[in-house]
Amino acid sequence: MTESLSQTDLQRRAARYDSQDGIGEFLVGCLFFFIARAVVDPHLAWVPALLVFPLRWALRFFKERFTYPRAGYVKLQPTETGPELGRGMLLYLGVVVFIAAAVLVVWGDVTSWDQWMKWLPAVMGGFCSGAFLYLAQRSGLWRHYALFVASISWGVACSLLPARTVYEGIQHWALGLGLICVLTGIAVFAHFVRTHPVRDEEGADEHA
C-alpha cells in the first residue's frame, strides 16, 4: 500500500504503530470476561462499568512497561471532540436498533418482548462492533475489522443457539468475544515482543 505524507495517512500510521502491541485487545477481552460473569450475577452488575476506568490505567501501565521501551511513545491527536464522538455513538446505536427492529418486522414479531430478548446478544454484538469499527477506521488494521465482524457474527450465532435464559445467550457472547480478543492480544503481543527488542536507553534519549 502506497502512503503519502498527508496528515490522514500519518495519523493512521501512528494509530497503527500505537496498536501494534495487542495490549488493548487483551485488556478489552478481560473486560468481556467480567461482563460475562456480571451478567449472571446481579451483585456484580456494576463491576464492568467500574472497570472501564482502571482499564485506561492498565493500558498505560503495560504500554510504559513493554511498548514504549521497544517501539517508542506516541500520543495520538483526538480526531473528534467529546460531543462529536457521543453523537456518533448514539447514531450507531440507533442504526443497530433500527436494523434489529427491521429484521424482527420481516422475520419475527417486533412487538414480542421474548423475540427482542432472544436477539439481545446480536444487538449487543452490533453495539460493541461500533468500537471495533472506530478503531479499524482509525488504524486501518485488518484485525480490528476482523473483530468488528466477529462481534456481530458471534452475537447473531449466540442468538440462534439454544439458551435456557436470555442471560445465558449474552454470557456466551461475552465469553466468546472475550476469548477472541484475549487470544488475538496474546498472539499480537508475542509477535511484537519477538520482533521489537528493548532499545538501549542512551540511544533512545540522546537528545535529552
Partner: peptide, 8 residues
C-alpha cells in the same frame, strides 16, 4: 499529525 512523540 500526532499530539506528541518520543525520540524512538
Amino acid at each position: 499529525a500526532v499530539a506528541e512523540a518520543d525520540f524512538l
